[in-house]
Write a protein that binds this DNA or RNA. Sequence first.
DNA 1: ATCACTTCTATTGTATGCAATTCGATTGTA
DNA 2: TACAATCGAATTGCATACAATAGAAGTGAT
Lengths: 150, 150
Amino acid sequence: MESCDRYAGLKLENQLCFPLYVCAKEVVRRYRPLLDELGITYTQYIALMALWEHRSLTMKELGSMLCLDSGTLTPLMKKLEEAGYVERCRDRDDERVLTVTVNEKGMELREKALSVPGEIASCIPLPVEDAITLARILRKMMADLCGEEQ
Amino acid sequence: MESCDRYAGLKLENQLCFPLYVCAKEVVRRYRPLLDELGITYTQYIALMALWEHRSLTMKELGSMLCLDSGTLTPLMKKLEEAGYVERCRDRDDERVLTVTVNEKGMELREKALSVPGEIASCIPLPVEDAITLARILRKMMADLCGEEQ
DNA sequence: ATCACTTCTATTGTATGCAATTCGATTGTA
DNA sequence: TACAATCGAATTGCATACAATAGAAGTGAT
């Protein structure tokens, strides 16, 4: 049953990470045309999801929730600010801390985004049962991979 | 049981793509220190896996196997050539086609990479059963997402 | 209060990724 | 055989990602 090939572990077809890597890229690619209509990218979309729910978050909180470091997050938030969706301002009590807040225009974008989850679901062919299993495993995995460093 | 929140579909915690995206990034990040020792990146690693197995592949074949387009693949292969692991040459019969071939030095790298899969497995906390289920679902999903365009 | 230490964000440098376009080579067809 | 259409890579432009570093702002122990 098992391959006795010395190099079996180095075959693409035996990798777990490779399909993970490909699926993630491909799914994000499916978002692109939908988010183009809103004028945002996928990374901006997930950042906005966090902000839509919490209204106001520090860079550190955002980084922790999205698993992104400041090298990615800083320019990302500057762009959302330029686009007029958020405001960035330093904390009075602690000048190191930068708090990002969604404004009215940012909250309006949420309405336009309402149809996105459904459209994505319909163009990703995955049986409901598999989707549930996948979500369970990935969420646990994400917690293990991201939680340990905090 | 179900949330009646109008915006439930736009919550991070209800996304399937988000943990997929995060897990893919985090797992690739786990590869980095291991591949640093070999002097290659993750994308170069998967390209080499394909080449280690097939010795010689055209850019089109590589792009199809790895789900990467020429904008990513062309500079990637040039770097592997500069590093001395592969040779790139145009097809005699069809000058449009560029064939990439691993050379001796490239094949030697395979030996050094033998320990990588095991080391990755040991630092990704996932029960065997979940790993098997995850692999099954992701492989099917990858086929659906990447196959339809060909 | 001082100074080493920690924290939080920003910056720099490198490597992807992909859409859109270009360009030379090949093919199919009248 | 012209020639439009197609094909396979390469190029361009933009947006991530992250490691490493910097730098300004707090903290804590003495």
